[in-house]
Design a protein around this nucleic acid. Structure first.
Lengths: 223, 223
DNA sequence: CGGTGTTCGCGAACACTGTTTGCGAAAGAG
DNA sequence: CTCTTTCGCAAACAGTGTTCGCGAACACCG
């Protein structure tokens, strides 16, 4: 019969039990893709370029991965293996914040990660371990299980949004957006925006709102 | 001199003051792109296909737009024109929630919008009008101007995350992810996940957490 | 040891993509 | 009516993800 549907990559066996053994592994390919993305950004991660890093042909990668998106999922999950998870302390807020701070460090290390986390959320093996850990932290918390899942998703997504924001505002492209805002403010309408731009100091803001916003949001969803 | 850098699209004049007048407008092209995306998704919005909708050649679009990303920005900003903004009521929480609900409706109408809002935040003319309105709503609020800007960004981004989430969980691809989770739960390790899957009812959850999470977050960032 | 079954690696090809170039045609200005 | 400037756009370029087909490589088995 045709129509063989394609399950999630984590359920497909990495190596066939018979036949010629593969020369590489998913982990090897993932590492090459991650290294390439760290160096030249996500858009540089094309099948041909990843294959070139490995010294193989582009078509060979399809023995390890059904599609490029699968490779992106592998990259995302591999970074979820960089967490250093210690036993729950009893203070779930502190523990979750610790995880968020680690997430921020990881996402800064891999500047392509926020985009992936936000646009294609996945639950690979490492991410599942992380989820298990978060559920462990929240074990004593009396909240709907669905809410706990939402809290986990929000923790990831919000952190990604924050890091993406602080990464793009450093980029030169953001300066042009800012210049455009000033231009609009000078136009006469939009007095509120003009006042805002006049009142704010471009640099040297007060404390980092990351922790504040995150804890507020988490307590918001967890009741 | 060479090296003419490219300012934001909103600052480039739409039509040259001399020479042959253009046959189309940015708005026309944007409308075609939006219609195409509504019908077949973002990835269907290629220069050639948008041009085909308009009955022109692909290269012609570059007289109106410097790059495809510019076109995406135009699409995003055009949806910001769909808000129905009424005068501030005095209750800033209620007003902001109203805006968020409208945002949700708009994003559901254009299922490609959340991705764009999240991955390439822009401030086109319509979005600037919206920002001015939000600042008007928050005029009486005693908060750092920078915080108000963050609140605006979070309002957009969080709404996009929510809508994206509810759109993708409806998609058949999410069912496979869920199946994978069940498979993991059956594996023996990850007892918390197993408990969570056993405890939760797949459908018929309680109230929509959208409003709750959003107000909590906003009060969080605004102090 | 010699098949045999199966998978692996991968060059070549297909159908796309965003973008540039070059040029004929069109329109307004003087 | 010329001249200047832009417009529309076919064709080409340099990529992209993915599929096909086939020789080679390996593990097992008689």
């Amino acid at each position: 019969m045709a129509g063989e549907s394609k399950p999630v990559i984590w359920m497909r066996p990495e190596q066939a039990p018979v036949g010629r053994p593969a020369e590489r592994s998913r982990a090897e390919i993932t590492a090459a893709a991650v290294e390439l993305a760290d160096r030249e950004g996500l858009e540089a991660v094309s099948m041909r370029r990843v294959a070139a890093v490995l010294g193989t042909g582009a078509a060979s990668l399809y023995r390890y991965v059904a599609t490029r998106d699968d490779l992106l999922d592998l990259m995302t999950d591999s970074t979820a293996g960089e967490y250093d998870l210690s036993a729950p302390s009893g203070d779930w807020q502190a523990d979750l914040l610790e995880i968020a701070h680690q997430a921020r460090k990881i996402m800064r290390r891999h500047h392509w990660l926020p985009t992936l986390v936000i646009t294609r959320p996945t639950l690979g093996p490492h991410a599942i371990d992380l989820l298990e850990h978060v559920l462990d932290v929240l074990a004593g918390h009396p909240a709907n299980p669905a809410r706990k899942l939402e809290a986990f998703a929000l923790l990831n997504a919000l952190t990604a949004l924050f890091v993406q924001n602080e990464l793009t505002t450093a980029h030169p492209g953001a300066q042009r957006q800012f210049a455009h805002l000033h231009h609009v403010a000078a136009g006469g309408s939009h007095p509120r925006i003009a006042a805002l731009l006049a009142a704010t100091s471009p640099e040297g803001n007060s404390r980092d709102p990351f922790a504040t916003v995150l804890t507020r949001t988490l307590t918001g969803v967890l009741g």
